[in-house]
Design a protein around this nucleic acid. Structure first.
Length: 421
DNA sequence: TCTGGGGTCCTTTTGCCC
DNA sequence: TCTGGGGCAAAAGGACCC
């Protein structure tokens, strides 16, 4: 689901490429959400299909290659996508299905190597250096993985094979759709130097603009720019990082364990809102969601942040660090609401609010000490009871009174935006 | 064209202490 | 007492990724 696709001016290889030392594989499912959704709708195969919210403010999550031919890309506003491709069928996303397939695919990868680093639902890095004797060369393994994913899941993937993560990722992008690209060790530098700067991981619209202003169009141009110039233009870390990548240097290894740094949720209103009561209710919903996910992950967190995006898309965040780590809905909500109220907004038009908790630690190591006069335990016990009920009767079966539709503001009870799952 | 929701990481600003 | 500045941590903002 890479956002940007790029192509090389020409491919050099005529012989089968030498994959010696190319032990990093990057596997990327082709148009993953769209391909997965088509498993249930085989009648739509070969036609333009867009996965995205049908509401007024959605964006494209994924699109079949037939739709992409019309110029539809992921993250594009749905309105524009429909205009570009009026014949497309629009399907709502089925995240449960995607998660199931993702889990199965990752399990398949682990049949070849235990060193698998999932990057998202639809892509992963694999280190196959320990699998060579048993399973053959990296390119052979890549081919076998592609065959098995297609056989077992009915969807295709593309694989990049290279000595480093960064080059493997570039290669899988180049392989799309349904392909395999090996970048031999000796070809890494000429390969990256030919790419446009925007192909680099970490170069988005803003950075590309800065680089183009400096007259840097290709990765080769970056490579031949003094490090100091890059650091001044992009900051120390980014400048150094891009310079390293431009020479094919990428010391990052494939990591099987990545600790979560934060858990959050945000939500965009169907229409901009200025009613504080309404916004409080949404903050409560989001706090509930975040807290439930924290408890499911057996994590507690110390810092609560609230995010507010205004109608003009400017965004502010406010954060507060608590005295004790928490995974309690009420505690998170109280902090988020205080942070929001602290902005002192008067009738500002708001399009999105969000709640996030960071400073995560395992719940087992957190010492939950109730503050005098604060019956924190009671709320936590209530949350745990809600979790049990949700597991038995489904999410949303038990709710805070103020979230029961119509309980607080009858005039809004028809608002689909406030109805709960 | 009018921009979702899940995140990570980096830089700058701010506030505090010495 | 006032001021400056170093060092640090937290907060805030923003770019980026899928």
């Amino acid at each position: 689901m890479s956002r940007r696709q790029f192509t090389l001016p020409h491919r050099v290889s005529t012989e089968p490429p030498d994959d010696t030392g190319c032990t990093v594989l990057h596997v990327d499912m082709d148009a993953f959400f769209a391909s997965a959704s088509l498993l249930a709708r085989p009648d739509l195969r070969g036609t333009p299909v867009i996965i995205g919210g049908s509401g007024g403010r959605g964006v494209v999550l994924s699109a079949t290659y037939e739709a992409r031919r019309f110029g539809v890309t992921s993250a594009m506003p749905m309105g524009r996508a429909r205009r570009l491709c009026p014949s497309a069928t629009v399907l709502p996303p089925d995240h449960a299905l995607y998660a199931r397939i993702s889990k199965a695919v990752m399990a398949t990868f682990r049949d070849w190597t235990p060193i698998v680093e999932p990057l998202s639902v639809d892509e992963a890095f694999l280190d196959v250096s320990g699998a060579l004797r048993r399973s053959g060369s990296p390119a052979t393994i890549a081919g076998a993985i592609r065959d098995r994913v297609a056989d077992e899941q009915g969807i295709t993937c593309s694989v990049g094979v290279a000595p480093t993560k960064f080059v493997a990722k570039l290669a899988s992008n180049l392989a799309k759709p349904d392909g395999l690209v090996v970048v031999p060790r000796d070809e890494v530098v000429p390969f990256v130097h030919a790419l446009p700067v925007a192909a680099l991981w970490g170069v988005g619209d803003k950075t590309e603009e800065v680089l183009l202003r400096l007259g840097l169009k290709t990765v080769g141009d970056i490579a031949h720019t003094p490090l100091d110039t890059l650091r001044r233009a992009l900051g120390d870390a980014s400048g150094q990082h891009l310079h390293d990548l431009s020479w094919g240097r990428d010391p990052r290894t494939v990591q099987t364990l990545r600790e979560e740094r934060s858990i959050g949720a945000d939500s965009t209103f169907a229409e901009d809102v200025d009613d504080a009561v309404y916004i409080h209710r949404r903050l409560l919903q989001l706090s509930d969601k975040v807290a439930a996910r924290m408890r499911a992950a057996e994590l507690m967190g110390l810092t609560v942040s609230a995010k507010i995006r205004f109608s003009d898309f400017t965004t502010v965040t406010r954060a507060r660090t608590l005295h004790d780590p928490t995974d309690t809905s009420r505690v998170i909500y109280a902090a988020a609401r205080d942070l929001f109220d602290g902005l002192g907004l008067q009738r500002a038009r708001i399009r999105l609010v969000g709640v996030r908790v960071s400073g995560l630690i395992p719940a087992s190591t957190a010492s939950v000490q109730g503050v005098l006069g604060e019956p924190d335990h009671g709320w936590r016990d209530a949350d745990l009871a809600v979790d049990r009920a949700s597991r038995r009767f489904g999410a949303g079966s038990v709710l805070p009174a103020s979230l029961v539709t119509g309980a607080r503001s009858p005039s809004r009870s028809q608002d689909p935006d406030l109805s709960l799952p």
